[in-house]
């Protein structure tokens, strides 16, 4: 027995090394996966505070670009508002006949709810990139919600604390987004394979479709994360490889991930219903 203890004592450094590495590998496998939620991450209150302080300093250097994005977004919103107002003015069907009742499309009746959030931590150059938002469960953010910016789809909320949220960016090696080519509604999957943060791949577009450079790619709305028709990017390269039954399509992303300042977390009020229905029907949720 004493020999055993002596042996352990002699190799204590190596044993502790092995123990710590095993712990690290456990952490990596357990928490670094796409779905896995970690106890310690940048949504942690104290970590969030440090990141908020940092972004409070660095944001001053980006005020000009932040302002111009917000102004642009305002302009687009005003334009849309004007359009709807004009349409409402011109449309007087509900006043024509008091006995006629027009049934509205029920799927349009419940809109998506947007929660604005400031990006306080962001990365674009790693293999797996995350964002941290200064918006948490108190603001209505929940894990699994989609995140969009004025320009397009950004990612998906991973974990949430009271005041902060960690978002898996679209620039994550395991992040998949269901998307479609707007022109002909062919749907595929958007996937980022690393390297340049401005381009991603659009997979599973069958060969009988004729995608062209410049075609718009938007979210499909087949899952409950993103609303339909959120911009993803434009096709920049179409390649047909002989040994594959799908095109290799490169998409230039609409969002400049290096310049993100304000984003919106999308809440789908009908999500629990759709998810539980699909779950009951035995359909696995596709990302």
């Amino acid at each position: 027995m004493r020999n055993l203890f002596a042996f352990i004592y002699r190799f204590r450094a190596f044993l502790i090394f092995v123990l710590l590495e095993a712990l690290c590998i456990f952490l990596i496998v357990r928490y670094n996966t796409y779905q896995g939620a970690a106890m310690f991450n940048s949504a942690n209150t104290y970590v969030g505070r440090v990141l908020e302080f940092q972004s409070g300093v660095t944001d001053y250097f980006r005020l000009a670009s932040v302002n111009s994005t917000l102004a642009q977004e305002n302009a687009v919103l005003r334009q849309q508002l004007m359009y709807y107002r004009q349409e409402a003015d011109a449309d007087s069907t509900d006043q024509l006949d008091t006995t006629y009742y027009a049934v509205s499309d029920s799927s349009k009746s419940e809109p998506f709810i947007l929660h604005a959030g400031r990006v306080i931590n962001n990365s674009v150059r790693r293999t797996n990139n995350y964002l941290t938002l200064a918006a948490g469960s108190l603001d209505g953010v929940k894990p699994g919600m989609g995140v969009i910016s004025p320009n397009g789809a950004v990612g998906r909320v991973k974990t949430v604390s009271r005041h902060y949220a960690t978002v898996t960016s679209l620039l994550h090696s395991q992040m998949l987004i269901s998307a479609k080519i707007k022109k002909n509604n062919t749907f595929g999957t958007i996937k980022w394979t690393g390297g340049d943060y401005r381009t991603a791949l659009l997979d599973y577009i069958p060969l009988h479709i004729k995608p062209e450079i410049g075609d718009t790619v938007v979210t499909s709305g087949y899952n409950t994360v993103f609303p339909e028709g959120i911009m993803v990017g434009t096709i920049s390269e179409v390649e047909r490889e002989l040994d594959k039954s799908f095109y290799t399509i490169r998409v230039k992303l609409a969002v400049d991930f290096a310049q993100l300042s304000y984003v919106y977390v999308v809440e789908n009020p009908r999500r629990p219903e759709q998810d539980s229905l699909e779950h009951e029907a035995g359909i696995l949720p596709h990302e």
Partner: peptide, 29 residues
Amino acid sequence: VLLLFLGFIAGFAVDIFYDTMGIHAAASV
């Protein structure tokens, strides 16, 4: 032994901020 634990702590601190749970800790150890 102390050095190993310090390595773990340093790597873990960076991991939390980088959202790379365990990667930097493993490398630092």
